[in-house]
Structure formats: C-alpha cells, structure tokens
Write a protein that binds this DNA or RNA. Structure first.
Length: 552
RNA sequence: UGGGAUGUAGCCAAGUGGUAAGGCAACGGACUUUGACUCCGUCAUUCGAAGGUUCGAACCCUUCCAUCCCAGCCA
C-alpha cells in the first residue's frame, strides 16, 4: 500500500473525516490530458472507489485568457474513457465565483486582505528574494472600509487590468515566498468560457483551490509535489476563514522516458505542426494514445505498476509498452498483414486454384472464432522473411530453405528473381501438398513459420508505423542553445503500403488487432472506403531482431 | 547562499530496530504452427557518504554530499 492510501486508512481509523473519503480531479481546461494526468486520474478515482468514497471532476477555470470549452469537452471524454466516474459531480471553480467573492470580503473585513495599488513589477521588487525578506507595501494598512470600497469597485469594473489586485495580508518576511502577501484576485476584462462577461476580477489558484475543495467537502486533496510550498497558504486561507479544511497530500509527478509531459511543450508541438494534432498517435495525450490503440486498461495497469511515492522519478517507456502488450495479447484477434511485400510464386500449385483455410482469430481463446483465408499460387510474404544469404540461426526463407506458411503449407524456395539493381523482386517456390494445414505426415520439422497473404485476394491499406516521438531518453535535458524540438525523432512516423488478408475489410475504425508476428494495430479514423488506414500501437517483442543486431 | 522535499539495482518500488519484497529492463534456458505468449533460472553481502547509539541499523542520532521545487496579476 502506498503512503497516500496508508494515510487515508489512518484517517479512517481515527475518524478524522468521519470515515468519509472524497477526492477530486481538478484539471485546468487549457490543454489536453496526458499520461501525467492519467496517474492523477487513476489515483483520485481509484482511491475513492477503493475506500467506498467519491471523486469529483472539477474544472479549475479561474484564468479566462487560457481556458476554452474545446478543452473541457476533451477532458470530459478522456476521463470517462480512462474509467473515471463522476456521476453528476461535474463542477467548475467558476461556479463558486460568487462564494469566493463573499469570502474575500470577509477576509478584508477581518483585516486579512487588502487592495494593492503597486504594479506587478513593484510587487515583485517588494517581494524580496529567496534569501532576503520582502518589505511591506505602502498600501498594506488601508482601512477595512477603504479596502472594501476599492474591492467592490474592482468588481464593478472601475479599474483597468493590472491597476489593482487583492492581496492576503500575511507575512512579507516569511521564508516561504508563497506566504509573502500572495495575490488573491486580479483584474481581467476578459470573457470567461462559462461566466461570459459577468466578472472582471478573477481569483487566483491558491485562493480558489482550497476553497473549492472546502465547498465540495473534499477530504483528501491530492496534488503533485510542486504544490508543497502552497500547502501553507491552502491551510492559512481555510483556517483564517474558519472553513472546513481538507488535507492536501503531495505525490511525485510522472515522467516517462522519450517523451515530454508538460502542457507548454505539448501545446507547442501541436501549434507548430510538429504533429498532426492533439490526438496524433505519437502524442502522450490520452486522445493520442487512444487513437494509437492503447487501451485504457493498459494505462490503468501502468499507473498501478509505477507505484506512488514522493521521490522524483522517470519511468522507462518499456514499462508502458509491457502493459500495452500484456493487455492486447490477451484481448486482440490475430490476423495476417504483409507490410513490406515480396511476391512468392508457388510453381507446382495449379494456376487458378484457390483454397480456403479456416484460421482461429486467437490461438488461446476459441471464443474469438475463426475466419476463412484464401490461398493461391501467388502470395506476398514479408521482405524481411527472406534472405539471399541467411545469417546463422536464421530460420526463415532462403534459397533452398523450407519454411511453413502459417496454417497453410510448407514451401521451399527454389530461386530468387533479382532485378538489375540486385533487388529481390520475386521468389520462385514449390510447396508440399502433403503439408496442408502446416504439418507434414513424415514428421519433418521446419523451424520457421511466416505469415502471408494471397496476392489476388489481398486488400491494400496504408499502415502507419510509429516510433518514439523523441530520439533521446530525456528531451527535457537540453544542451546549450537547443530546445526539446531539436530531439524530435525524424523516424517517428513511417507510412507503408501494406497487403492485408480479406477479413480485415470487416474491421471498423478503433478496432484493435494483432498482425501476426508484427505487432498490435488499430484501425484509424482516417480510413475511407477506398483505403483502410492502420496505426501500429506497438511491435511484438522481437528477440530475433535483438539477437541479429547483437551479432552484427 | 532562505525555505521545503527527496536519495534502496539500469528504471519504478516495498521495507519504519531483527539481518534487503515485487514489477519492468537485461541475461541464460525450456516450450512453441507468431523467433510472440507462457514457464523456469540469474541479477543489491548492501540501502547517497562518513561517523555515532545498539547484541543487532536501510530504519535512531550527528555531520556532510547530491538532486528537485518556490521569488506569475499561471496552475
């Protein structure tokens, strides 16, 4: 059990929150959700479920200049997709603006907040530095009456953006910079995606978040480590207002190798066109991963496997890959596709003859059923499954070598036809009619089994082969004069024209399947009636490739 | 150089005074009509370092070192 669940268990044992467990997932609708959010979603919704509690979905929309409804729609969809259930508890910080305002007046009345006339730059200067205390503003000791009047006029729109702010009166000498009279409200004459033009003053995060948690009766407010300094202010606001106080607990945010998980960087990738959009299958966004074919179950498993702690950490991408393969291996039909076709002619197979083989969709799960796959004289096999000069231990096709065509026949390569440039353009083979189904009555063994597709029955498709978006483990660690964009992987997307077995025609966009011996794929929404498009979610583990590479 | 947080294997991560779980990766091997899957095995004499307390320390104490976060009218 991780430290957060341990803590909740303790709180329940002491009855601190009356055995209630109520969490919330509080995204700001200023971008799409990504893998880092998945950790938070799994945690918040997971904890609530495990302890018989509830988890709210709350949009932290206090900055009208950055937030858009497009983002709230995508967030709603992504959380739901990942398995978050919030019933009717979909809240918005902006729903609380009126209450927040009343609390602010209360703070002023208590002499705990004041209207500041200093400019942003002056405030910064007065704040001091990390090693030097700040100094008090000349406006810090205005009367309650004057503060109240000014604050009301701020709300009424009498002042321009930046002219005034409301600050908490705490301690300009605090070693915690967050406590040096933090800004509570700023003036923004901007349209808000939900409240329109009703407001021109907007509350800041520190002030809004704690009160929103309080209003919703949250028990455990889980957030990432960088907010640990803000906890003192979180507690201060609620305590001085005498409001119900949830417990904030911080955990380490997720980092993953070969990717970036910062909204700023992701938005840049989209806006500058380095990817096709937020849902580009190379993006670590939930929508991107969904389109890539990564199932939510795999993401949830990943989140539970990476654990939860307070130490900064970077999880290897292979961990995610493992979870994806683990799930897809069990839950996906097998099918045959040739991505880099080379033609095979079976010389002793009658011209015009077509046989159909019944092949199971899943070798270990009969409930997947089967489909018929046509076999004929001319086939396609994978270019990589043939070598003119096979290396040691290569047990696929080569001149003179015999191999099994999956679920069909044994074939032996008689001859490779080359073009002028020396490229293999066709393989002339013979088959053993006795080996129908893939076994020979004389009991002879063939080491290799390769996949294939009947040439005349094959349907064409575009297959998009993805690799890591970044070529280095940590794109955030930039050398002098470089940005993370300098580490983009030029090979991250390769499109190939593939040949598919006919049964693939019945798959729909979003369907996931394994192309035997190649990897897991997902039919893309870009598919048209004329051309199907598939995304490679991930390859299969390939120990042969690894072995061969090592030998080379 | 103020304050806060964190250091256990290549990567995550348990462990909270009784002699270093587990997963991923890696490496061997078995099986195999997917070189997949599955299965078996190997992988920390040592827990950031040095001292100290104790019969006994990754856990307690002291000092040191390293990394991360904070000086938005962002969240």
């Amino acid at each position: 059990m991780d430290f957060i669940r341990t803590r909740i268990t303790e709180d329940n044992a002491t009855g601190r929150f009356g055995n209630r467990v109520h969490t919330r997932f509080p995204p700001e609708p200023n971008g799409y959700l990504h893998l880092g959010h998945a950790k938070s979603i799994c945690l918040n919704f997971g904890v609530a479920k495990e302890f018989g509690g509830l988890c709210n979905l709350r949009f932290d929309d206090t900055n009208p200049t950055k937030e858009e409804t497009e983002y709230v729609d995508s967030i709603r969809e992504d959380v739901h997709w990942l398995g978050g259930v919030w019933d009717d508890r979909e809240f918005y910080a902006s729903d609380y603006f009126e209450k927040l305002y009343a609390y602010a007046e209360q703070l002023i009345t208590m002499g705990k907040a004041y209207v500041e006339d200093l400019s942003a730059e002056e405030i910064r200067e007065y704040r001091g530095t990390l090693t030097q205390p700040g100094k008090e503003s000349p406006w810090r000791n205005r009367s309650v009456e004057e503060n109240l009047d000014l604050f009301r006029r701020m709300r009424a729109g009498e002042f321009a953006d930046g002219e005034k702010v409301l600050r908490a009166k705490i301690d300009m000498a605090s070693p915690n910079v967050v406590m040096r009279d933090p800004t509570l409200y700023r003036i923004r004459h901007a349209e808000h995606h939900r409240t329109g033009n009703k407001w021109c003053i907007y509350p800041m995060y520190d002030y809004t978040h704690c009160l929103s948690d309080s209003i919703e009766g949250i028990t455990h407010s889980l957030c990432t480590l960088e907010f640990i300094n803000n906890r003192e202010l979180y507690d201060w606001v609620l305590e001085t207002l005498g409001a119900y106080r949830p417990q904030q607990i911080e955990f380490a945010r997720l980092n993953v190798t070969y990717t970036v998980l910062s909204k700023r960087k992701l938005i840049q990738l989209v806006k500058e066109g380095h990817v096709t959009g937020w849902d580009d299958p190379r993006m670590p966004t939930l929508s991107g991963m969904r389109r890539r074919g990564i199932p939510p179950e795999a993401l949830r498993e990943f989140c539970s496997r990476i654990g939860l702690a307070r130490a900064d950490s970077t999880v290897e991408y292979s961990m995610l890959e493992f979870c994806v393969r683990e799930y897809l291996n069990e839950h996906t039909p097998r099918v045959m596709a040739v991505l880099d076709p080379i033609k095979v002619v079976i010389e002793n197979y009658p011209e015009g003859q077509v046989e159909e083989f019944d092949m199971p969709y899943h070798p270990e799960d009969a409930s997947y059923g089967s489909r018929k796959v046509p076999f004929s004289r001319e086939l396609y096999i994978e270019r990589d499954d043939f070598r003119l000069e096979p290396p040691k231990k290569y047990h696929r096709l080569a001149p003179g070598a015999e191999v099994r065509l999956r679920y069909a026949y044994f074939i032996t390569c008689r001859e490779a036809v080359l073009d002028d440039a020396g490229n293999v353009v066709e393989l002339r083979c013979v088959y053993d009619p006795e080996s129908k189904g893939g076994q020979s009555p004389d009991g002879r063994k063939v080491k290799g089994t390769i996949h294939w597709v009947s040439a005349s029955h094959a349907i064409p498709a575009e297959v998009r082969l993805y690799e890591q978006l970044f070529a280095v483990e940590n794109p955030n660690a930039t050398a002098e004069g470089q940005t993370f964009l300098d580490y983009l992987n030029p090979e991250s997307l390769k499109k190939v024209e593939a040949k598919l077995e006919p049964a693939l025609a019945s798959f729909k966009a979003g369907d996931k399947m394994q192309f035997e011996r190649l990897g897991y794929f997902c039919k893309d929404k870009d598919s048209t009636n004329a051309l199907a498009v598939f995304n490679r979610t991930t390859t299969l583990r390939d120990t042969w490739a690894k072995q061969e590479k090592k030998g080379a």
